[in-house]
């Protein structure tokens, strides 16, 4: 037997079930993407529904608020990428520095909890805390003779509120993957550095941070692929008539205009548009990452 093949076949065998999954459950349904160019009628099926060419896309691009929606989406996505994304990394590093095991466990468990609270409930607490009249914070302000703040309706607070909710709910959850990475760092490296007289900062700089680099780059690139997804439920629940100018994003737009009326052709087209944008960004940054000697995602 060919030696390369001899070495490879067990590996191909291991890959096979997964590959089958991707082909059957991911690639076969992708045929449905033709709906993006059709006026879908469930009774005529995928092939029977009439072609409409680029009508759905035309409807999106000629939408007068298209640029506002796109801008809002990118702004919120940018906030997630540049302000939220580093937080779990920082948190993992902080926790890595904690030497008392019980403190570490306690903090870790506490920050992990909110991941299991659904957005509806988060939105509920947000109102209970931030409402202008009955909100806890404003009641406190009023009692001390301060001006009430329109935290939920003033568009200038929206992005901060969005970020705060995200940090509260997902910081701890996001930390896990980085903690797992740190857990596989050889403790011998730290010992050696300590013996060499490296202080805490130098250990952090020369051991901890480099060991996170690969995973951070991968996570960042994968996130870029999802740049158009900014958390539909969260935003939908936080949206109101007064903050619409900054809170209307791609997903809420598609929800209003397609999903609610069962227009599957239109929603498929919108999904396709999102995917293409994500793909372009992902490929660009993956190439960039490889230039800097990183492994990248493929």
């Amino acid at each position: 037997m060919n030696p390369v093949w001899k070495r490879s076949w067990p590996i191909y065998l291991m890959i096979f079930p997964g590959l089958l999954f991707f082909i059957v459950f991911r690639y076969i349904p992708m045929g449905g993407l033709v709906l993006a160019f059709k006026d879908y009628d469930p009774f005529s099926g995928f092939s029977g529904s009439p072609w409409v060419g680029f009508d759905h896309f035309h409807r999106l691009f000629t939408q007068q608020d298209f640029w506002i929606i796109l801008r809002n989406t990118f702004v919120l996505s940018g906030i997630n990428l540049f302000f939220f994304f580093p937080i779990p990394i920082a948190m993992a590093i902080l926790l890595n520095e904690v030497k008392l095991p019980w403190v570490r466990k306690l903090v870790q468990t506490t920050i992990y909890i909110p991941h299991f609270v659904s957005w509806v409930v988060v939105a509920g607490i947000t109102v209970v805390l931030f409402a202008t009249q009955d909100g806890g914070i404003n009641k406190l302000l009023a009692e001390h003779g301060r001006q009430r703040m329109e935290l939920l309706t003033d568009p200038s607070y929206f992005q901060a509120l969005f970020l705060t909710q995200n940090i509260w709910k997902e910081m701890g959850w996001g930390t896990i993957i980085f903690l797992a990475s740190l857990a596989s760092v050889d403790p011998g490296l730290y010992e050696a550095a300590y013996v060499d007289g490296a202080g805490r900062w130098r250990q952090l700089w020369h051991i901890t941070l480099p060991s996170l680099r690969t995973i951070v780059v991968i996570m960042f690139i994968l996130r870029l692929g999802q740049i158009m997804d900014v958390g539909f439920e969260q935003i939908f629940l936080l949206q109101n008539s007064l903050n619409l100018s900054v809170s209307d994003v791609f997903d809420t737009y598609v929800y209003r205009n397609g999903v609610q009326h069962g227009e599957f052709g239109f929603t498929t087209a919108m999904g396709l548009f999102k995917s293409v944008v994500g793909l372009v960004l992902l490929l660009t940054f993956n190439r960039l990452a490889k230039k800097f000697g990183e492994e990248g995602v493929y």
Partner: peptide, 15 residues
């Protein structure tokens, strides 16, 4: 159903 959802939201925001 195609046009109203957006228009209504905008009208409501203005009002």
């Amino acid at each position: 159903s195609k046009l109203a959802p957006n228009l209504n939201e905008k009208w409501m925001a203005a009002v």
